[in-house]
């Protein structure tokens, strides 16, 4: 059973890395700024999941804290970028 588990870990990690590649490609292609922000949003969720996989692989819980921080800061980043696209400024006076 541990062979299946190791295979599943490697497979899922490969999936997330490929997904990150797709999102990065979309970020390069664009074509408009909102596509890039959406790609960044997807990219950070995939990065978060990859970190959780690493945590399961190494049997530690340190990666959980990093994943939580990515969830928080990634959200703030996407919101700031989307707000900037909407209004042309992030914090309105």
């Amino acid at each position: 059973m541990s062979a299946l588990f190791n295979f599943a870990l490697a497979f899922a990690q490969l999936c997330f890395i490929l997904a990150m590649c797709c999102a990065a490609a979309r970020m390069m292609i664009g074509p408009r700024a909102q596509d890039r922000v959406l790609a960044l949003d997807t990219l950070y969720i995939n990065g978060l999941l990859t970190l959780l996989m690493l945590g399961m692989r190494t049997s530690t819980t340190i990666y959980f804290d990093i994943a939580l921080l990515i969830a928080l800061f990634g959200f703030v980043g996407s919101i700031a970028l989307a707000k900037f696209l909407l209004r042309g400024e992030v914090v309105e006076p």
Binding site: A12, Q13, F16, L18, C22, A25, A39
Partner: peptide
């Protein structure tokens, strides 16, 4: 769960592309 979740996430990003 890992295999299923990985496939779904990959499909989502593929759709984005």
């Amino acid at each position: 769960l890992l295999i299923f979740g990985g496939l779904l996430t990959l499909l989502g990003s593929l759709g984005l592309l």
